[in-house]
């Protein structure tokens, strides 16, 4: 049986084609202003990779902030449910999934069957999501892609005292004025975000194995700070952006 999963995120649309429990195609397209057409394109690309046509697909399940956009979906699943199911396929031993995207952080406790036991969402605090890293990288005038590796060169810990994203920005400015090396400030910023995320994860409990997915998982600086905070190893899937889409495709397969 062939199913498809679509993760319609704020930035990118991801599509996964699943045949008998194996991923046979995947594709990504920028969401842009028309997520519905982006979904069409990514769907076709993924099908091409899988070597089949739309008619071969039994069921399509959509997830992500724009999950209602794709016209060809048959059903939807929440981001929480999709992450849980996706990680269960990739790493069945994972019990805690941390998903940090641009605007939102999520922590999910999963049981041995990939079922959601509990979840927490950080939605109010901008200091605990990817957008904050971007703003801070801008404030330090460092390209975003260099921001993580750069922070790893720090060799002293500087505390960030502001507890709020708005204040943090001006604190960063005053740290710069105090001639604190930029790499130390970068590290302090990653520590601060990791602290917020850890707070959230503690709500659902930190049960190993722990996996980190979502765009911010690409930031090695953040990953280092998070490991230090949680004091444990963290699994980061290679297909970290596709976890939601994989989950959605499995939800589609499970239903039949």
């Amino acid at each position: 049986m062939i199913t498809a999963g679509i993760d319609c995120g704020a930035k990118n649309v991801k599509v996964v084609i699943l045949e008998d429990g194996k991923v046979t195609g995947k594709a990504m397209a920028p969401a842009g202003i028309d997520a519905a057409s982006a979904a069409e394109k990514a769907f076709d690309d993924a099908l091409k990779m899988a070597g089949c046509g739309r008619e071969a697909v039994t069921k399509v399940v959509s997830t992500g902030t724009g999950k209602s956009e794709p016209k060809f979906k048959n059903d939807i699943v929440t981001e929480v449910g999709a992450d849980a199911r996706g990680i269960h396929y990739l790493y069945p031993n994972v019990r805690t999934v941390i998903d940090v995207g641009a605007e939102e952080g999520r922590a999910i406790r999963v049981d041995e069957k990939g079922k959601v036991v509990d979840f927490a969402i950080n939605e109010k605090c901008a200091a605990g999501a990817g957008a904050f890293t971007e703003a801070m990288a801008r404030a330090l005038e460092i390209p975003l892609e260099d921001f993580g590796p750069f922070s790893l060169t720090s060799n002293q810990e500087v505390p960030m005292n502001a507890q709020c994203a708005v204040f943090a920005e001006s604190e960063v400015v005053s740290l710069v004025h105090r001639k604190i090396p930029k790499q130390d400030i970068a590290r302090a910023i990653h520590n601060a975000i990791a602290d917020r995320i850890t707070s959230m994860v503690r709500m659902v409990g930190v049960t190993p194995d722990v996996a980190l997915v979502g765009g911010v998982a690409k930031n090695v600086g953040f990953v280092a700070s998070l490991k230090e905070d949680l004091q444990m190893e963290i699994t980061i899937p290679e297909d970290r952006e596709f976890v939601g889409a994989i989950g959605a495709a499995f939800v589609a397969a499970d239903a039949k």
């Binding site: 005292n161 502001a162 507890q163 204040f167 001006s170 604190e171 005053s174």
Partner: peptide, 9 residues
């Protein structure tokens, strides 16, 4: 005040 305060500001 918070637990830590931004002394500079």
């Amino acid at each position: 005040f918070d637990v830590t305060v931004p002394v500079g500001q």
